[in-house]
Simulated assay, not measured.
Amino acid sequence: MAVFTAVSDSQLTDWLQNYELGEVTDFRGIASGIENSNFFLTTTRGAFVLTIFENLTATQLPFYLDLMRHLASHAVPVPDPMPRRDGALFGMLNGKPAAIVTKLDGAPELSPAPAHCIEVGHMLARLHLAGRDFASYQPNLRSLAWWQENVPAVLPHLSGDQRALIADELAHQAAFFASAEYRAMPEGPCHCDLFRDNVLFAHPTADETRLGGFFDFYFAGNDKWLFDVAVCVNDWCVDLATGVLDAARTDALLRAYQTVRPFTPAEEHHWNDMLRAGALRFWVSRLYDFYRPREAEMLKPHDPGHFERILRERIQSAPPPADGN
């Protein structure tokens, strides 16, 4: 999250006339992230997040907001979009689509332990199953076709070794995606970006950790559930300095997930292929954001080298099948 589009006090006051949220008591930008303009909004009726969508169109946006409403109605802790007076879940602000959602309790846990990974794995599986009867469909917009389209834009910035790596991995993933086993894997709505900073934990007591919820669904889309798990494991269970998976955290997350939804044999067999797919997806996007940045009031681009290390590690050190036993 970042601030690309500023909002004045008078603009906010006028725009909030479309809602029944009370009077504003606090309004400030959120610095982290790189895709949309986000603000903490506190009113006399509660705490919210206001998002101005910099890339998603008014045609695309209903999928994401409707998905959050659907998950919230199925007891998955996610931000719930606030309806306007006319019943719509978003409107136009400074010429761009914008929405207000409830603010979840808690704070990110950036140094997770196995106990945190258990909570995340369990809830991610619940999210997948809750989405089975969600009627709308939106493909993951940052999947193979996006990688193939955008890699040429970053190639001039890469070394010869990096160009060879990204080309080889694109070919590997294209073959994997074309396989019958890949096509048969279970799928549905996925978060597709469930990093440590997109999950909140509350600590009601010194000895208790409670999952506050998942947020930032604006990369969500229909994809293989295993891809969502792989993206999650590549962040929650990794040593940040080396890209190596931590065995205790990985085992905790996968066991918790599979107590709710066990992997199929094809998912077990292709676990490492999907870990590589998750690493490639974020290496490509971080390369693109780093070398072709947009202007923003508050912008902190991520290091693309982090996911290059993870991809190399997944290729060189394939873990055993994730059978959860």
Rank of each mutant, 00 (worst) to 15 (best):
L200Q: 06
V260S: 00
A72Y: 03
R255W: 01
L299F: 11
M82A: 14
D251H: 07
H269D: 15
A252H: 05
P189V: 09
L71H: 02
M298E: 06
A174K: 10
A241E: 15
V24Q: 05
P152C: 12
T43S: 08
T264H: 14
T42H: 09
L226W: 01
D80C: 05
S37G: 09
P156S: 12
D303E: 13
F90Y: 15
G46I: 00
R142I: 11
A248E: 11
L89P: 00
A164G: 03
G278M: 04
R126V: 05
H203V: 08
W271M: 13
E23W: 01
F219K: 07
G46A: 02
R163L: 07
A256D: 02
H302R: 09
T13M: 11
F290G: 11
L226M: 11
A220E: 02
W147E: 04
S111Y: 15
V76Y: 15
F90P: 14
P81Q: 11
I310N: 01
Q60H: 01
S143G: 14
A178S: 14
R69Y: 07
E149M: 10
W271Y: 14
S32N: 12
P204C: 10
F282K: 07
I310L: 07
L280H: 01
A58I: 10
A206I: 13
H116I: 04
A153W: 10
L165S: 08
D105H: 12
P189C: 12
R314W: 01
S285I: 06
H128G: 07
A125H: 02
A164S: 14
M92S: 13
D193L: 03
N325V: 11
P304L: 15
N150C: 04
R314C: 02
L165K: 03
L253H: 08
K96R: 15
S136C: 04
W146V: 00
I118N: 05
W236I: 01
A75Q: 06
A153Q: 13
G278I: 06
A206Y: 04
R276Y: 08
D80T: 07
R45I: 02
W236F: 10
Y257L: 06
F176M: 09
P108D: 05
I52Q: 07
G106R: 09
R28C: 06
T25I: 15
L89V: 07
L155V: 12
D251P: 00
F4N: 00
L155I: 13
R261W: 11
P139M: 15
N36I: 06
H128T: 15
D289V: 04
G221T: 04
Y291N: 08
P62S: 12
Y137I: 08
A145Y: 01
F63M: 12
I100Y: 06
T209S: 11
Y137Q: 06
N150I: 02
Q11M: 05
E109I: 00
A171T: 08
Y137N: 02
